[in-house]
Design a protein around this nucleic acid. Structure first.
Length: 171
DNA sequence: CCCTGATTCGC
DNA sequence: GCGAATCAGG
């Protein structure tokens, strides 16, 4: 993935807004949170408060115990993006003139994907994250697939529940 | 175990 | 410059 001006701009904006690197990565799409953090550092705008104490790291010795294979630890590299939801989203947007509100990738919306469901359309497996102002007419619900462990999809579960752990963070 | 940002370093 | 790996920590 290429760091276009637009993407960098979005990155800076979201970072300035205080979003976490993983969330920024999720919204930009196609990049890992590490990529985002790395980019942020290179842009020299990492100074968002004191995050961690000045740790002095100097590990990384000789990982190659055998085989010259340049095997980077595959680990669990997950796309993160919900391809199904995204696909369905696009298809729906094409035939939904009403919900068409953003024209720019630099959307000021924090929620990357949503199915714009109405209250009636909610089921037990649809994310019930409110989208927008409940008093407004164009209010809708996220509607993406919600896990069995909550009323929200994984993304919104984090938005909803993360703040708790975020609060008691005061390094 | 989930997550956060920070840093190093091979590419 | 990029980002995976790794770290230190909540």
């Amino acid at each position: 993935m290429n760091w276009t001006d637009e993407r960098v701009e979005t990155l800076k904006k979201l970072w300035a807004e205080g979003l976490s690197a993983s969330q920024i990565a999720a919204q930009l799409g196609g990049v890992s949170r590490n990529a985002v953090i790395g980019k942020v550092h290179r842009l020299k705008l990492s100074s968002r408060g004191r995050a961690t104490s000045p740790r002095t790291r100097q590990k990384k010795a000789a990982p190659s115990t055998q085989g010259t294979t340049t095997t980077r630890r595959p680990r669990n590299t997950r796309p993160t993006t919900v391809s199904v939801g995204a696909t369905a989203l696009q298809a729906q947007f094409d035939e939904e003139p009403v919900a068409r509100t953003y024209l720019r990738p630099t959307a000021d919306v924090v929620v990357p994907i949503s199915r714009k469901l109405e209250l009636v359309q909610l089921t037990e497996t649809t994310c019930k994250w409110p989208n927008g102002d409940p008093l407004s007419e164009d209010f809708s619900f996220c509607g993406n697939e919600a896990g069995e462990n909550g009323p929200y999809c994984t993304y919104h579960s984090r938005l909803a529940y993360q703040p708790a752990s975020e609060r008691r963070r005061s390094r």
